Computed example of a mutant assay.
Amino acid sequence: MISNKKLRDGLMIIDKKFDGNCLRIMLKGRLDTNSAPILEESLTDNFQNINSLILDFEELMYISSAGLRVIILIHKKIPNDCEMSIENVNDIIMEVFDTTGFSNVLSINQ
């Protein structure tokens, strides 16, 4: 894997890694009102030539409604032939996904 880009805003680190046709986005910190637009902007042109998008939440500690909105926007923007999954979700964020119904729409692996 090749590390492509890290963005730091003081609250979240976004680390992108490409492996062939797979793009893995590792998030660390908080996905909230301040950091959600940064995530959305950083993914604008990264969906071409990939068939798998993995959002790795291993080090994500918090997600707000703004973060949920960006997750849904990303899910809608990826090409139809691209699979999106969310991995390494902690219990707190999984509870948010269950409560909001996102666990019924997205492929989530704890």
Rank of each mutant, 00 (worst) to 15 (best):
F102S: 15
T33H: 05
N49S: 09
V70D: 05
L7G: 11
L11T: 06
T44I: 04
D32V: 05
I92E: 13
M84S: 13
K16I: 05
I13K: 07
D15G: 04
F57G: 12
I92K: 11
Y62G: 02
I63R: 12
D32R: 07
D32C: 09
R30L: 00
T44E: 06
I38H: 07
L43V: 00
G29T: 01
I2S: 08
N109K: 15
I38Q: 10
R24H: 07
G101W: 06
S3N: 10
L68M: 14
S64A: 05
D9Y: 03
N34A: 11
F47S: 00
T100K: 14
L106N: 06
G101T: 06
G29H: 02
S64T: 03
N88G: 01
L39P: 08
M26D: 11
S64C: 01
I71H: 08
E41G: 12
L39E: 04
F97G: 03
N49G: 03
T100R: 03
M26G: 12
M61V: 02
T44M: 11
L39N: 02
P37S: 06
A66M: 02
G101M: 01
G101A: 10
S85I: 10
R30E: 10
L68I: 13
I72K: 12
F47D: 06
M94I: 14
E59G: 01
M26I: 07
D19W: 02
S3T: 11
T100M: 02
I86H: 05
D56G: 06
F102W: 13
E95Q: 08
D56S: 05
T44N: 09
F97Q: 09
K77M: 09
I108M: 14
S103C: 10
L27I: 07
N21D: 11
C82K: 01
N104Y: 13
G10I: 02
N4R: 12
E40N: 03
N34P: 03
D45N: 14
I14S: 01
M1S: 11
F18Q: 03
L68H: 11
G29F: 03
N104A: 15
D9E: 10
R8L: 05
V89T: 14
P79E: 15
P37N: 09
L27E: 02
M1F: 06
L11K: 09
E87H: 14
E83S: 12
P37R: 07
L7P: 09
K77T: 00
G101V: 01
T44C: 03
F47M: 04
R30Y: 09
N51P: 03
I108W: 14
I54S: 05
H75K: 10
G67E: 02
I38W: 09
D19V: 00
I38E: 13
E40A: 00
E58L: 08
A36C: 12
S85L: 13
L55H: 02
F97L: 11
R8N: 10
E58W: 01
I14P: 05
I14C: 01
I93E: 12
R69Q: 07
N80R: 10
L68D: 11
S85K: 15
L60A: 03
D98G: 02
I86D: 14
M61K: 07
K16W: 05
M61P: 00
D81W: 10
I72E: 12
I108A: 15
D81H: 15
N49H: 04
L31R: 06
D15N: 09
I63S: 11
N4M: 15
I74V: 15
N4C: 12
V70Q: 04
C22N: 04
V105L: 15
S3W: 00
G10N: 09
G101Y: 04
